[in-house]
Simulated assay, not measured.
Amino acid sequence: MSVDSLNAVCPYYTMYPLDFPLRVLKEHGKRGDWVIDPFCGRGTTNFAARLLSMPSVGIDSSPVAAALAQAKLASAEPGRVVATARSILKAAKVTTSVPKGEFWKLAYHEKTLLQLCQLREALLTECSSQTRILLRAIILGALHGPRPKGKPSYFSNQSPRTFAPKPNYAVKFWSERDMHPDDVDVVGIIKARSERYLAEPPPNVEGKVQLGDSREADTFSNVPKARFVVTSPPYYGMRTYLPDQWLRLWFLGGPDYVEYRQPEGQLEHTGADHFSSEMGRVWKNVATHSTKGARLIIRYGGIHDREAEPMDVLKASLVDSGWRMVTAKAVPDSDSGRRQVRQFQSEPKKAITEYDVYCHRA
């Protein structure tokens, strides 16, 4: 176990590597500098800042992302997390509402699904303590994933671990292979994961993560002025974040089916110019909440089904934003990481080159 184990609490297919924000903040920052990530995703920048004793603020419009990022700033002993899970299940009512249908029947054993629903209901009612925030993240990480040959480490039938299986495809897949969900030890899985991720806690550092829309100025009303903004915004055309995380979204209070509509608070992908303009609103907001001499560092790339050149989209977003672009460096391993261009079951095309873009406050 290591001090950075908590960063792996839940996979997220758009995550960027921890070494990116760590390197940037080590090279240019110092202990105590405030850091903002207005597209924080699962909180990698916030966690890097925590490791370096730098306070941070993370903002994301996805409930899944915000829940995971909040866990990156929390601390609790493994035993307390397990005890909380046991206490919830012991006190739970049998009448808990359980989703119905072929997908749910094949995705989870009946007993497992009931316990997940009991945990879900309790955490939806109260999840303000650090112990419960970490328990929630640990459950989200174990909610779906592959079935190992040995002891189960996920609650579900065979599934991807980074994104939720789509119901029709999953039912067909499981039925054709006669695959049925195991009666897993829910508390045992929580215990194993708690001990893995929480055995060596990182330093306690001031910070917060909030669910919100970074385009809106009010989102930053209580945000301290930061010396660094380190982030990776959505690539133009990537708009399936919530549908691809629908099971984790369900656990956080969402519907028990996939919703494909564009949710409120998400950047709109109706055109490259509009997308750049909307992203520019975010850069203006973080400029207002940054110190003199602050730096904005952005990792950015693109996907293959959009004709717009990614760097053109990003450069347009920086016009009159309060930031001046200084340099852009190609990421040498763009194709090796699991980034926004690499998802679903099929073999992805060669990744479009990603860039680390460095800006100074104008």
Results as ranks from 00 to 15, higher is better:
2 S>Q: 03
3 V>F: 10
3 V>I: 15
4 D>F: 14
12 Y>C: 14
13 Y>C: 10
16 Y>D: 07
31 R>C: 14
34 W>C: 10
36 I>K: 00
50 R>C: 13
50 R>K: 14
53 S>D: 13
54 M>T: 02
55 P>N: 03
66 A>F: 14
66 A>P: 15
67 A>E: 05
67 A>Y: 09
71 A>L: 12
82 V>H: 00
82 V>G: 03
93 K>H: 11
94 V>P: 15
95 T>Y: 07
95 T>S: 14
96 T>D: 11
98 V>N: 00
98 V>K: 05
101 G>E: 09
105 K>C: 15
106 L>G: 02
106 L>V: 04
107 A>M: 15
107 A>D: 00
108 Y>D: 05
115 Q>E: 15
116 L>R: 02
116 L>A: 02
117 C>K: 03
118 Q>G: 06
119 L>Q: 00
121 E>D: 07
121 E>K: 09
128 S>F: 02
129 S>Y: 06
129 S>A: 07
138 I>F: 02
139 I>G: 03
139 I>S: 04
140 L>K: 00
144 H>F: 13
145 G>V: 08
150 G>W: 05
151 K>S: 12
151 K>Y: 05
151 K>Q: 11
152 P>A: 12
152 P>T: 05
157 N>V: 04
158 Q>C: 09
160 P>D: 07
167 P>N: 05
171 V>S: 05
171 V>M: 07
171 V>H: 00
182 D>H: 06
185 D>I: 12
190 I>V: 15
192 A>N: 11
196 R>S: 09
196 R>V: 13
197 Y>S: 09
198 L>T: 01
202 P>N: 01
203 P>V: 09
204 N>Y: 04
208 K>L: 14
214 S>K: 03
220 F>I: 07
233 P>N: 01
235 Y>N: 04
242 L>D: 08
243 P>A: 06
247 L>A: 05
253 G>C: 14
253 G>Y: 08
254 G>V: 13
254 G>E: 03
258 V>N: 03
259 E>A: 13
260 Y>T: 11
271 G>D: 10
273 D>P: 13
275 F>V: 08
275 F>Y: 15
278 E>W: 06
283 W>V: 13
283 W>Y: 13
285 N>M: 09
286 V>S: 09
289 H>D: 02
289 H>Q: 10
290 S>M: 09
293 G>M: 10
297 I>P: 11
298 I>G: 06
301 G>V: 13
306 R>M: 15
306 R>G: 08
308 A>R: 00
308 A>G: 14
314 L>G: 09
316 A>I: 08
319 V>R: 02
321 S>M: 04
321 S>D: 05
322 G>T: 04
325 M>C: 13
327 T>W: 10
334 S>W: 04
340 Q>K: 01
347 E>K: 11
347 E>A: 12
354 E>V: 07
356 D>N: 04
358 Y>N: 00
359 C>L: 11
